[in-house]
Computed example of a mutant assay.
Amino acid sequence: MAEKKGAEDRRKARVRRAIRKAANGRPRLSVFRSSKQIYAQVIDDAEGRTLASASTLEKDLKGSLKTGADVEAAKAVGKLVAERASAAGVKQVIFDRSGYIYHGRVKALADAARESGLEF
C-alpha cells in the first residue's frame, strides 16, 4: 500500500519542485538539520552527484565547536561548504532549505555561505 506523506514530506517536495523550476542548471545547496547536528551539500541534479559537503560531524569542526546544534555551528558549516564549493568550481547555487523555515540555524548557514563567496 502507498504510505501517506506527512506534512514535512509534502513541504519538502513542494520546496524542491519550485527549486527545480528556478534552478536554470545551477547546483543546489541543500540543508539538513537534526536536533544535534547540521549538514549541507552542494548537489548537481543534472548529473545526480554531490559536488561539496560539510557537517558538524567532521573532525576539524567537531573539536572547535561547543555543540553541533547552534547558530555558531551552522555558520562554520556554511563557511566550510562555500569554500569547498569554490574549490570545486561552483560560484552560483540555488538554496534548498528542505522545508525548514528560513530562520535561526538555516539562515545562519545561508548567510555564512554568502559571505564566503557563494552567490544565491
Rank of each mutant, 00 (worst) to 15 (best):
A13R: 09
V42F: 00
G25M: 03
Q37L: 09
K59D: 14
Y39R: 02
L61E: 05
A52R: 00
R11E: 03
Q41E: 13
I38E: 06
Q37E: 13
A40R: 08
L61P: 07
V42M: 06
K36E: 12
A23M: 07
K36N: 12
R11Y: 01
L57N: 03
I19K: 11
K62T: 03
A13L: 07
S30R: 14
T56Q: 10
R14Y: 06
F32A: 09
L29P: 01
E58H: 07
S53I: 00
R17M: 06
A23Q: 06
R17V: 00
V31F: 07
R49A: 03
L61I: 09
G48T: 04
R26A: 04
K21S: 09
R20D: 08
E58N: 07
N24W: 14
E47G: 08
R26V: 04
K21Y: 01
K62W: 00
R20K: 11
Q41L: 10
F32R: 11
G48F: 10
R16L: 06
R14N: 11
L51T: 01
F32H: 15
V31G: 04
R17N: 10
V42W: 08
D60V: 09
G25T: 04
K21I: 03
G48E: 07
D44V: 05
K21Q: 15
F32N: 13
N24H: 15
Y39M: 03
R14I: 04
Y39A: 00
R20V: 13
A52M: 03
R49Q: 10
I19Q: 05
K36D: 08
D44I: 08
R16Y: 03
T56V: 11
A46S: 13
A54P: 05
S34C: 01
I43W: 15
A46H: 13
A40P: 04
P27E: 02
G48W: 11
S30C: 14
S35H: 14
K36I: 09
S35Q: 15
I43K: 14
S53V: 04
I43S: 10
R33Y: 12
I43E: 12
L29E: 02
L61C: 08
A40H: 01
R17A: 15
N24Q: 13
I19M: 10
E47L: 06
R17S: 15
I19V: 12
S30G: 13
A22W: 09
Y39N: 00
V42E: 01
I43Q: 13
A18N: 12
L61H: 10
K59T: 14
G48A: 09
V42L: 05
V15D: 00
R49P: 00
F32C: 09
S55N: 07
K62S: 06
N24K: 15
R20L: 14
K12Q: 13
D60G: 08
G48P: 06
K36Y: 11
L51P: 04
D45T: 12
S35A: 14
A46D: 05
S53F: 11
V31I: 14
Y39P: 05
N24G: 14
D44R: 10
A52T: 02
G48M: 09
K21D: 14
R49C: 02
A23L: 08
I38C: 06
A23I: 01
R49N: 12
S30A: 15
L57H: 02
G25H: 02
S53H: 12
K59N: 13
A40W: 02
K59Q: 14
G25Q: 02
L61R: 09
A23C: 12
G63H: 06
S34V: 01
L57D: 05
R17H: 10
Q37K: 13
P27D: 00
